[in-house]
Design a binder for these strands. Structure first.
Lengths: 228, 228
DNA sequence: GCGACTTTGTGCACACGTTCACAAACATCT
DNA sequence: AGATGTTTGTGAACGTGTGCACAAAGTCGC
């Protein structure tokens, strides 16, 4: 703990949520051979304002050079490290419907510090099948697989009815990070993080705003219809 | 615009983002025959605190009865209406890899005010196949399909490289709500809403917290190892 | 009808997040 | 070396979201 100048603790949640996007933008730039970026350019690539980007990065430490900008490689490496992508997190996916299938074959994981080490399903029809170069195991072996392969992150892509049970079993064998795609609330003890992704939720939020827009049009239209 | 007591405008974004979860919890309760809930019970079911729930609901109007609680059916209907789920939004999905497949077959859409009216892909191998009872069309016909079937919400499940092009074409024919699953930033004109869902992002956020937890353990362990 | 009890709706204080605006720190050119 | 120009890092102001605590408004029992 000697050579660590960074602030370490106290990175705001809102900032953490944006770091992956910054990292993606930086990886893009690096791929196109760009060596250096200003906060303005990087912010545009990440879809935020430059002031926000700079404040976010300031929480990680001081990796830019005034009057110049940021070295793409250096900053990407630093964000990677802070996000914990230096290590290769072993991930288990439970539930191999189309969504689980999509997650298992998603290449975005492998090259970003994640390694899918287990696919589990309940359905005997699915167990034994090969998906993305792996054999699907039975969910009955969850405990053995998680402990045996050191799974750190559990992904739940089952129907809502099974989600809590799978979650409980994950937690019971020491998993403290869960990504939940089932449309239900998971209750977990303190110290366990659950992030939820619900496809229907996102559509509903869009629908809310879409409706407001259509209503506005309906309110304006009478004014327009005076001149047909 | 006479019989509308609700506040209508000024529903905070944070509240809108939670309404779908409340609606889901209410639908659950209704399915189990529950007729009335207190804010405390509903909050637990939705994974929030009761004070937050009540404040959220207060933005929609006053649909509870003091001393009693909320009527499940009434509140569910009201939230549905506010979210704009009374109408049936026509949705088009572009890109039918595993993720697009998962979205197309996801039953959570149909019974929540959304209707998938078009599936489009670029790959001639995929075009013409039947998925979830629909024939996959060619992305070349995007404009015709969107205008012809009145698509209001566009879902992009293509690789990142094609996402911006598909988005531009959506916007050009009047789509103002886009759900983007491609790992890239989409630039759109003012008035168009884009929501982004990135599977890798969620995992990275989990990894960040997981790393912090493991670091804490490493700092504490020496103290524990004194007594083996 | 009235008191006791329950639960909502909300004013207020606080915490968190965002934006502005600028001094500090570097590069470059003369 | 000094003047000029550029871009970062950050204090300070502002806005949004959260949690507390309680008055208001209802039910229920007698």
């Amino acid at each position: 703990m000697i050579a660590d100048p960074a602030a370490r603790r106290d990175v705001p949640d809102a900032t953490v949520a944006r770091l992956p996007e910054y990292l993606r933008a930086l990886t893009d730039l690096a791929g196109r051979g760009v060596a250096s970026v200003s906060s303005e350019e990087l912010a545009t690539a990440a879809g935020v304002r430059s002031a926000k980007l700079r404040k976010d990065l300031s929480h990680l430490g001081s990796y830019g050079v005034r009057g110049v900008g940021y070295e793409v490689e250096v900053l990407a490496h630093e964000i990677s490290r802070q996000l914990g992508l230096a290590q290769n997190w072993p991930v288990a996916i439970v539930g191999l419907g189309y969504l689980g299938h999509a997650l298992a074959t998603y290449s975005g994981f492998a090259n970003r510090g994640f390694h899918v080490v287990a696919l589990l399903d309940r359905d005997p029809e699915v167990v034994g099948k090969e998906i993305a170069g792996m054999i699907v195991g039975s969910v009955d072996d969850l405990e053995q697989v998680v402990t045996g392969r050191g799974v750190a992150i559990g992904v739940i892509a089952t129907p809502a009815a099974s989600a809590q049970e799978v979650c409980d079993r994950f937690v019971a064998v020491g998993v403290r990070s869960v990504l939940n795609f089932a449309p239900c609330v998971l209750s977990v003890p303190q110290g366990v993080d659950v992030r939820k992704v619900d496809l229907a939720t996102e559509l509903q939020i869009l629908a809310f705003h879409e409706q407001r827009k259509t209503e506005s049009v309906r309110e304006i239209r009478p004014l327009l219809e005076v001149s047909p």
